[in-house]
Amino acid sequence: MTWGSYGSTREAFEAIVNRHMKDAYFIALGLVGNREDALELSQEAFYRAYKHFDQLNAPEKFFPWFYQILRNLCFSHLRKRKVRRAYAVGAEDSGSGSGEPGSAAMMAGQEAAMAAMPDTFDPEMVAQRNEAKDRLWQAIGQLDEKHREVIVLRHFRNLSYDEMARVLFCNRGTVTSRLYYARKRLKDILNRESGCPTAECSDREPRKGGQK
């Protein structure tokens, strides 16, 4: 790469970053649940995209390609965080019991803890908070990867089904099916935690004027 082409690539990439930075930040926020990680991971995703930017032959392919980098970074970050937390929980449990570090019982305990562990979402990230919104935000943190991303893309970035199909590299049918199961799971989590059906729960909190 010559310095001239470096300059023009950098300028073109800066324009792309400015165009997509809000999408990148808010998608990362919806996937990982806190501001610092969302900022860090979205900027890191742009940096990784830059390293291979000259190989991208069509500008309209940028966002779906970039989205794959971003979601992989976010989910890999969450998995690492879960492993660290599960290890801490396992170490605590074995400290109070007879398990030794590295024993089969301790490792099984960590795996079980990991499976049951929801991702912690910062409640301060929700605008105009009320109880219903807080519970929903925490419930999104309990969804698995495939379901969480369709909720985030649809509700926080307002992507159409066709746009979602493009960024997820799947067909429309898969998008609608994932949305169905994601919303069903959300409904189940909310019902289980509140002990009341979704209808009653949503009526309990008056809706405050949203910006949408």
Binding site: V17, F26, R35, L39, M125, A132, Q211, K212
Partner: peptide, 28 residues
């Protein structure tokens, strides 16, 4: 599902201050 969607549509994420967007490219 309609009730659930009402709450989900109501959830807005906090818009960060302008400074974050101004410094965003600098971070990258």
């Amino acid at each position: 599902f309609r009730k659930l969607k009402q709450i989900t549509d109501d959830v807005e994420l906090v818009e960060p201050e302008n400074r974050l967007w101004q410094q965003y490219w600098g971070g990258v």
